[in-house]
Amino acid sequence: MSIGNSPEDERPFEDGRSSDGHEEEARPSVGRALQQARIAAGLIVDDVSSATRVRIAIVHAIEADDFTPCGGDVYARGHIRTLAKAVHTDPAPLLARYDDDHGGRPAPTPAAPLFEAERIRPERRGPNWTAAMVAAIVAVVGFVGFTAFKGGDSDTDAASQVTQGATPSAGKPAAPKPSNTTATPKSDPSDSAIAAAPQDKVTVQVSAVDGRSWISAKDHNGRMLFDGLLKKGESKTFQDSSKVNLILGDAGVIQLYVNGKKIEDDFQPGAVERLTYTKGDPEVG
């Protein structure tokens, strides 16, 4: 069967029979169940591929119950679990059906990260706003120090021009020269562009606090700021003049800060969220 067939063109699934010859209740195969759940969720294959990073060809093959492109039972089970979450269905019955059809659950084996294997294009990093802020601070401190040094030279030149006959009064110590040095501001290494979010821009920080998640971020022109996997404990900060568009592959593990304020949305584990934030956000609710 062609990978690109529509649901109406899928071949019918045969009913199973028990050992005593009686027909048992028909149930959809793993691929058929995933396809039906996707259609019920109002998603197309492109949506599922974008949300899960599983290639379109593999999604089509799995929905046709062809697990050969997955590269083995371990990877096939991982794909089934990922696709089930993306179409909002329970993966447990599907994994049990797969195990029944393929000789039981495979023994645990070390496997490369699932999402890394399915990466379509290399990760592109957004601008490093923290480094830019540090560079700006260093430039300001250097300018202040240079100004103070020039001021000290001027005071020395003026003192050398005093008439030799004029002597300081006895018993009066020379007045200390006022210091023009300016204390260097200290920055907390944990601070980022969020801590000084400009009022004329929208700044969004995405942190994977409870696990890893694929994320995508675009600016108001649709230009890709980031497209890749955010591992547990990692953070990304995005900034634009008017709007930042996000897609979160597993919103339940993500914590968001928008324009310096924490977003309290109750994202569910495994849920795919499409979000847009502007300079006026976060709005109430």
Results as ranks from 00 to 15, higher is better:
A64L: 09
V87Q: 07
R53D: 15
G78C: 03
A112R: 15
A107T: 06
R77K: 06
T52E: 06
A57E: 15
Q36W: 00
H79D: 14
D101A: 15
G31N: 09
I44A: 13
L114A: 13
A84V: 08
S49F: 01
P91W: 05
S49C: 01
E63C: 05
D46G: 12
A92F: 00
P108S: 10
L95W: 03
P113M: 07
G103D: 09
R53N: 15
A96T: 02
D20M: 07
L34R: 04
D99L: 02
Q35S: 14
A40Y: 01
G72A: 13
G103S: 07
P91N: 05
D65R: 07
I80H: 00
I80G: 06
V87P: 06
I56F: 09
P110C: 00
G104Y: 01
S50L: 07
L95S: 10
A33I: 02
D47N: 12
A64C: 03
T68S: 15
D47T: 00
Q36R: 13
P93L: 05
D101C: 03
R77N: 05
R55F: 06
G21P: 08
C70P: 11
P28L: 06
Q35L: 14
G78T: 05
D66V: 01
D100G: 03
A37T: 08
H60V: 02
P106K: 04
V59K: 09
A76Q: 08
P108L: 07
P69C: 12
P106Q: 08
A86D: 09
C70Q: 04
T89V: 14
R38P: 06
V59C: 12
Q36M: 14
P93W: 04
H79M: 15
V74R: 05
P108G: 09
H22G: 07
D99T: 13
T68C: 04
E63G: 03
H60N: 14
H22C: 08
H88M: 03
D101L: 13
R105T: 12
S50C: 04
A112L: 14
E24W: 01
G71Q: 10
K85W: 04
E25W: 05
A37H: 00
V87Y: 03
E63R: 01
D20C: 02
R97M: 11
P113H: 11
V48G: 08
P93V: 01
L34I: 09
A26D: 07
